[in-house]
Deep mutational scan, measured.
Amino acid sequence: MTFKAIINGKTLKGETTTEAVDAATAEKVFKQYFNDNGLDGEWTYDDATKTFTVTE
């Protein structure tokens, strides 16, 4: 399945996608990506659209 992340950061904005077997796996991938890029913020997840949003 394809999962999307919308990034609303102070220094980084945009979208990225990942292929994962479930939402928990996708969340781990996205959180690692955000940690690697120095992002920290509020997380939400919309199961209907398979979209994570992080707002810094």
Rank of each mutant, 00 (worst) to 15 (best):
A24W: 10
E42A: 08
D47I: 07
L39C: 10
E42H: 10
E42W: 10
D22W: 00
G38T: 04
T16G: 04
T53Q: 05
D46T: 03
F30L: 08
D40A: 12
A23M: 09
F3H: 05
T16P: 02
T25D: 06
E27T: 03
G9C: 14
V21P: 14
D36M: 12
G9S: 11
F52H: 01
A24K: 11
E15W: 14
F3R: 05
T25W: 05
N37E: 09
G38Q: 07
M1A: 09
G14T: 13
T18E: 02
W43P: 01
G38M: 07
G38H: 09
K10W: 10
G41A: 09
G14R: 10
F30C: 01
N37V: 14
F34S: 04
A26H: 00
K28S: 09
N8A: 11
T16V: 15
D40P: 03
F3I: 03
N35A: 14
A26R: 02
F30W: 02
V54D: 01
E15C: 15
G14V: 14
W43E: 00
Y45F: 05
E56S: 07
K13L: 10
E15T: 11
E19N: 12
V21L: 11
A23V: 08
E27V: 04
T18D: 02
D36Y: 08
D36T: 09
G38E: 04
D47Q: 09
D46I: 02
T49Y: 04
D47C: 06
A5Q: 02
G38D: 05
A24R: 08
K28N: 06
T53V: 08
K31T: 04
K4S: 05
W43G: 01
I7T: 04
I7K: 00
E56G: 05
Q32S: 09
D47F: 06
T2W: 14
A5E: 05
T11K: 11
T11A: 09
K4V: 12
E27G: 06
D22P: 00
V54P: 02
E19R: 14
T55V: 10
Q32A: 11
K50M: 08
E19T: 13
F30P: 00
K50R: 14
D36P: 03
V54I: 14
Y33R: 05
T17E: 07
V21M: 11
E27W: 13
A48H: 08
V29Q: 13
K10I: 14
K10R: 12
T17G: 02
I6M: 06
A24H: 07
Q32M: 09
I6P: 00
Q32R: 11
Q32N: 07
K31F: 04
T53A: 05
L12K: 10
T49L: 05
Q32W: 05
A5I: 14
K13W: 14
K4Q: 06
I6E: 04
T25P: 01
T16E: 04
T17F: 14
G14K: 11
L12T: 07
I6G: 02
L39V: 12
G14F: 15
D47G: 05
A5W: 08
T53S: 06
K4C: 12
D40R: 12
K10A: 11
V29Y: 15
D36Q: 12
K28M: 11
T55I: 10
T51F: 01
E15R: 04
A5L: 15
W43M: 07
Y33E: 03
G38R: 06
K13R: 13
N8F: 13
T17V: 09
V29H: 12
I6S: 03
T11C: 15
K10S: 11
D46G: 00
D47K: 07
I7C: 12
E27C: 14
Y45M: 00
A26D: 00
E56M: 13
N8E: 07
D46P: 01
T49N: 06
T44G: 04
E56T: 11
A23F: 10
D47W: 06
I7E: 02
E27S: 03
T2G: 07
L12N: 08
T25V: 06
T53H: 09
T44R: 08
T18Y: 08
N8H: 11
L12M: 12
A26V: 00
T55D: 05
D22F: 02
E15P: 05
D40I: 14
W43C: 01
F34N: 00
E27K: 11
T51G: 01
E27F: 15
G9L: 15
Y33A: 05
E42G: 07
W43Q: 01
T44V: 10
K10Y: 09
N37L: 15
T51I: 05
K31M: 08
A24C: 12
G38V: 06
T2F: 11
L39G: 04
A26T: 00
Q32V: 09
L39R: 04
K13I: 11
M1Y: 14
D40W: 14
A48Q: 10
V21T: 11
G14L: 15
N8I: 14
N8V: 15
F30Y: 02
I7V: 10
A5P: 03
T16H: 14
E19Q: 14
E27P: 00
K10P: 10
A23K: 11
M1F: 14
F3W: 03
K4Y: 13
G14H: 14
K13Y: 13
F34A: 14
T44P: 00
Q32Y: 04
A48K: 09
F30R: 00
T18S: 03
T53Y: 13
Y33V: 05
T49A: 05
A24Q: 10
A48V: 11
F34M: 12
D46V: 03
A5N: 03
N37G: 06
G41Q: 06
G41I: 08
D22Q: 01
F34L: 13
A5H: 02
E27I: 06
G14M: 15
V29P: 00
V54K: 02
I6R: 04
A48N: 10
T16A: 14
G14P: 03
N37C: 15
E56K: 04
G38F: 13
T11V: 11
E19H: 13
K28E: 08
G9F: 15
F52I: 01
I6F: 05
F30A: 00
F52T: 01
